[in-house]
Nucleic acid binder design. Sequence first.
DNA 1: CACGATTTGTTCGTATGTATT
DNA 2: AAATACATACGAACAAATCGT
Lengths: 252, 252
Amino acid sequence: MQLNRREDVPVYRQIALVLQQRIDAGEWGASGQLPTEPLLTAEFGVNRLTVRQAIAELERAGSVVVRHGKGVFVAPPFTRAEIVVDAASQQVDMGSVHLTVVEAADQLYERVVGSADEGDPEASSHLGLPVAHLQRVDTILGLHDATAAVLTSYWLDRHRFGDLVSRWAGDVTLPAILRAAYGIELGYDWRGFSAVAAGLADSEHLGVAVGHPLLVRDGVSVDESGAPVYYLRRRYPGERVKFILRFRDSGI
Amino acid sequence: MQLNRREDVPVYRQIALVLQQRIDAGEWGASGQLPTEPLLTAEFGVNRLTVRQAIAELERAGSVVVRHGKGVFVAPPFTRAEIVVDAASQQVDMGSVHLTVVEAADQLYERVVGSADEGDPEASSHLGLPVAHLQRVDTILGLHDATAAVLTSYWLDRHRFGDLVSRWAGDVTLPAILRAAYGIELGYDWRGFSAVAAGLADSEHLGVAVGHPLLVRDGVSVDESGAPVYYLRRRYPGERVKFILRFRDSGI
DNA sequence: CACGATTTGTTCGTATGTATT
DNA sequence: AAATACATACGAACAAATCGT
C-alpha cells in the first residue's frame, strides 16, 4: 500500500481510509480482527503512534472496537431499542423507556446519582421560573440485568419539590414518585430530539468514551391542569435507541 | 496542581478534568482562551503530547474548540435550529428543513453528491423490496449562504426511478423532482430519531471531525395511495438542529 | 509584502505499564 | 510464567496556520 507523504492529507488519515475500505470490503469478515499494531506498523512503514492515530479515528467513527490485550475488531452492527410514538393519538406510555421494556417493566429502576440547587437557563425559560428557584436532580435509569443505562437531569421548582430527593425511595421512576407523594398525574407538553457529544461526566455515568454520540431527548412535562412540573434532559447512548414517530395508522 | 502518577486514572484524563473544572468556573471567561500547550506542559510538569491528549479529550467532549495557529478556546454555547412537528395535526411541511428556513425557502438547495446501485438491509426491509432492486442517492442539503449542510441518503426502487439522477437538475429538493417528473405527491409514513458518530465520509461532506455526533432522522415517505416511495437517512451535525414534537395545542 | 515569532499539527523514536491468553 | 497486544508517557523535530512588525 502506497502513502503520499507530501499529500496535504495526513498519513494517519490515509491509513484510516485504507483500513475503512478493507472493512467495507469485508476483508476480516470471519473473526473480524484487524492486524495488530506492529503488523500494521510494518506494512505501512510508519511509526506505531501513527497507526494508533488511524485506529483511534476508526474507533471514534464507530467502525472498530479496540479491546485492551486482545486486539482491534470490526464493530458489530448495533441493534437499537425502538420506542414508538403515535402522532395521531398522542398516546405515549409515561416515561417512554417503559416502552422498550414493556415486557419487563418491573426490572426497570431509576436511581438518583446527584442533586443540586442549580438552575439552567434553558430549564428556566421553559418552566417560566427564575434560575435561582430551580433544583436539579440527576438519575440513572436502566435495567437491573443490563449494563445499559440512561442519564437524566430533571429541573424542578425547589420551593414546591424541595423534599423530592428525600422522598425518593430507590428503584422507582419519577412519575411514580410524583403520583404517590404529590398526587400529580403527568402528561407530555413537548419533547425535543437532538444529539451531543458525551462530556466527561456523561462518560463516567454511561460507560462510554468521551465524545461518544448521545441522543438527547428533552422536554417539559405538565400536570392535568397543563401547568409545567419539570423540564428534563435525557441522554441515551446513540447506538442503543431509536425514537419512531408514526404518522399513518398502524393498521390495527 | 497535583497529579497522582500512581492513580489508576491516566494523567491526561486528570488534566482534562482539571481544565474542565476551570472552564466550568469561568476562569478564562473574557477571551475564552486557554493557556498555550507549552504553558500547560510547564504547569503540570508533563510531556506536550500528554497535554495534547487532555485537550483532544475536551475537544471531543465539545468543551473547547482548537484553532490551528491561534490557540484553544472555550466552546461557545450552540444555537440550534428548531424544527417543530405538531403531533395532533400530523401536518408537517414537506422536507422539514424548510421549516428552519421558512423565510428563505428559495435559498435552499439539494445537490446530488453520489449515487450507486447499492442496497441496504434496513432500506430493503422498510420498502419491502430486495436489496438488489434498490439504488442509493446521496445529497447535500443546505443554504447557499451558510456553510451549514445536511447529508441525506435516499434508497429507491431502481426499476421505477432509474433515471432519477439524470432528471435531477440541480438545486431542487427531491420532493419537488418527484412531483414534477413523476407526478408523485409525498407524505410521511414514519420518521425515526437516533444518533451516530460521523464516519470518514460523513466527516468530509459535513465538515465536522470524525466521530462528531450526528442526529439521524430516517424514515419512509409514501405516495397518496400509501405505497412507499423511498427510505431516507438524513444526518445533521448534532449541535445545529433540534426536532420538537409538540403534544399539546400550541394555543393558537 | 516579507519575515519572524507564536501556536497548534504531524511524525518519529523509545520506554514502560496493563490486560489477555 | 511467558508471550502477545493495546495503553500511557516522555523527548525531539519539523510542518502549517496565524499574527504583528
